[in-house]
Every structure is written in C-alpha cells, then in structure tokens.
Simulated scan of single mutants.
Amino acid sequence: MSSMNPTRLDDDTLTWGVPSRRVGAFLIDWLLIALLTMGVSIGFAVIHIMTLGLLHGPAHLILVIGAIYDVCWIAGPFAATPGQMAMGLSVRRADDLGRPMLAQAVAFTGLLYVTLAAGVIWLAIAFFTHRRRAIHDMISGLVVIRAGALDGRVW
C-alpha cells in the first residue's frame, strides 16, 4: 500500500474499463494535436512568407508537436492528457501510483509512437495483461488507471 493512497496497488478496480477508455482518449487527443499542429503550421507559413523563406528551418518542429503535447501533459500536475482527463483516466507509476517522472513520460510517449508505427494491433495486448497494461506502459514503468479509483469512487 502507498502511504499517500489507501488504494491497494494490485486492486483490479483501478483498471476496469481502461482499454476502451484509452481508445476514446486517444481520439480526443489526436483531434487536439491535429488542431494544434494546424495552428502552428499556419503560424510558420506566415513567418516563412514574411521572411522570404529565411526562417523556414523551425517549421520542421511541427513534426514533434504530438510528442511534446503528450510528454508535457503526462509529466505535468494532472498526470494525464486532456483526452485522458475527459475519459476519467490518469497515468501513474506502476510501483506506487505516484505521478510519472519526466523520463518515464518521455519513454511512455516515445514507445507509444513506436508501437503505433509497428502496427496498432500491438496495443491490443492491454486486454490480456495484468492491470491492462500495453507494452509501452510496462517498459516505461507506468500504468493507466481510472482517476476516480484513486478517490475511492467505484466508477
């Protein structure tokens, strides 16, 4: 048991319904990242035109907007992206249910994108593992739980 949290670490109620909620959270975050990327792209296009192409180099930063978005939200005070918050999820350390460290958030996000590039079918492993963890969860030492379970709420 964690000294800060009376919830048992191996309590199965922490992860009931998490895989399906993760799909919804991913779709919400994908939409938000797409909107953010479009806004930044328009800004870079204006800068590109105003400088006659001299400041075109920073425009390549749009390739990492999604990763920065995920890492900042997961390592932040809420320990969840806006999509995860909307779906009632939280990302926590697997050993003590504390907030993720920055290195764990970077590993979690990087491995998520590697898993997506390798084929979405690899994410289905979350339906069959203990605590419904995907491969990138296990390697990074994190677990996605229902945020309400930390408060003692059943659902």
Rank of each mutant, 00 (worst) to 15 (best):
R8V: 12
R8Q: 14
L9T: 08
L9I: 07
D11V: 00
D11T: 01
T13F: 00
L14D: 01
T15Q: 04
W16H: 14
W16A: 15
G17T: 03
G17E: 05
G17M: 02
V18N: 00
P19W: 04
R21E: 05
R22G: 02
G24P: 02
A25D: 01
A25Q: 04
L27D: 05
I28F: 01
I28R: 08
W30A: 15
L31H: 09
I33N: 04
L35Q: 10
L35K: 14
T37G: 15
M38N: 15
G39D: 02
V40E: 10
V40K: 10
F44C: 11
F44D: 11
A45I: 07
V46H: 14
V46S: 15
V46Q: 09
H48K: 10
M50P: 07
L52G: 15
L54Y: 10
L55G: 13
L55K: 00
H56W: 11
G57P: 12
A59M: 10
H60M: 05
L61Q: 06
L63P: 08
L63W: 13
L63I: 11
V64E: 14
I65F: 12
I65Y: 01
I68M: 14
I68V: 13
V71A: 01
C72S: 12
W73R: 03
A75P: 06
F78C: 13
A79H: 07
T81W: 04
T81L: 04
P82I: 04
Q84N: 04
Q84F: 06
M85V: 12
M85W: 02
M85I: 05
M85K: 00
L89I: 02
L89V: 03
S90L: 12
V91N: 08
R92D: 03
R92V: 01
R92F: 05
A94D: 12
A94H: 04
G98K: 01
R99V: 03
L102H: 13
L102R: 07
A103F: 09
Q104H: 13
Q104F: 10
Q104I: 10
A105L: 00
A107V: 01
G110F: 11
G110D: 00
L111N: 05
L112P: 06
L112S: 10
Y113S: 09
Y113W: 00
T115L: 02
V120E: 13
I121A: 13
I121K: 03
W122M: 03
A124S: 14
A124D: 08
I125T: 12
A126S: 10
F127S: 03
F128I: 00
H130Q: 15
H130P: 14
